[in-house]
């Protein structure tokens, strides 16, 4: 099985020594993200996120399914993540590595279990028909920060997605095509964003958005998920270094600023995309909302 190549001794000592002198290899300061790029596809629900060299693609799709019998009023919402050799030659298809399981669980916890999507609104007929919304995350290039990038991709794709409108007449359910009726956006309750911290030199130094090289050399890491209102959705810290309460608080405070920036960025891109679409498809007349 191909393994990720460990950084050589000279790289290791240099990176750690430079961090002591407050220098990062790519010239960022400790608390800044790499350049973030976000673009949307031709169809609804495709988001392409570039965080430095890391590139993640998220695709949202919806189909009608039978709800789970223990939750007849809820729709189904799934996120699938798979690390393939496309992202890095160190990943193999088919076999789940520990990293992959951790990543999938983290994304699941951050977005699905924090209730980012109102699953009740996906119900069509209680106990019989509901929407099954599925997000497929594809990793195109791995240069660290997979969690942060995929979280941004998923929430951006979910906000961008529109599902076909449905009308129920007695027993009959009609699904209207996208041209027949204006498609409906998903009801999103809040937008969680992950910020990953990496710790060095026994927790003295903490970095935001580490590159792959920095990730390989870190002593410990922690992922905080917040929304722009400062509500903490989850904190994931699987092993590594012990972090004091004050340091944690400080991290969360910095993360909030980052989260607000990123949320605003996603919103800006969504609006740009919307105006582009309105002009292209002549959608100005076809809105279902009434002016209030």
């Amino acid at each position: 099985m191909p393994r990720e190549l460990e950084p050589s001794t000279s790289e290791k000592t240099f990176v750690l020594e430079a961090l002591k002198q407050k220098l990062r290899i790519d010239g960022r300061d400790f608390e800044s993200f790499r350049g973030l790029e976000l673009s949307f596809g031709e169809d609804y629900g495709l988001a392409d996120v570039q965080l430095g060299k890391t590139r993640v693609l998220a695709r949202v799709s919806a189909e009608v399914a039978k709800p789970f019998s223990d939750r007849p009023f809820d729709g189904i919402f799934q996120i699938t993540t798979e690390l393939g050799p496309m992202a890095s030659p160190a990943f193999e298809t088919g076999r789940q590595t520990e990293q992959e399981v951790l990543l999938a669980r983290l994304i699941e916890k951050a977005i699905r279990r924090s209730g980012a999507i109102d699953t009740e609104s996906l119900c069509i007929v209680a106990g019989q028909k509901c929407w099954q919304v599925r997000v497929d995350v594809h990793f195109l290039h791995h240069d660290g920060g997979l969690v942060d990038a995929s979280c941004i991709a998923v929430v951006a794709a979910l906000q961008h997605f529109r599902r076909p409108d449905v009308s129920v007449e007695g027993e009959k359910i009609i699904i209207h095509t996208l041209t027949e009726r204006v498609p409906v956006p998903l009801s999103i309750l809040h937008v969680p964003i992950c910020v990953t911290y990496s710790f060095y030199h026994g927790g003295e130094i903490s970095l935001v958005d580490a590159t792959l090289q920095e990730e390989q050399l870190r002593d410990g890491d922690m992922t905080i998920t917040l929304n722009k209102f400062g509500e903490v959705c989850q904190i994931a810290k699987a092993g590594g270094l012990p972090i004091g309460a004050l340091a944690l608080l400080q991290c969360a405070r910095v993360a909030l600023v980052k989260v607000q920036e990123i949320t605003a960025f996603i919103q800006k891109r969504l609006e740009e995309d919307q105006t582009l679409r309105t002009r292209r498809d002549n959608l100005l007349e076809s809105t279902a909302e009434n002016p209030r």
Binding site: E4, L5, P89, H142, Q213
Partner: peptide, 8 residues
Amino acid sequence: SISPAPSS
């Protein structure tokens, strides 16, 4: 020059 090269 791709950083996570496999050791092959």
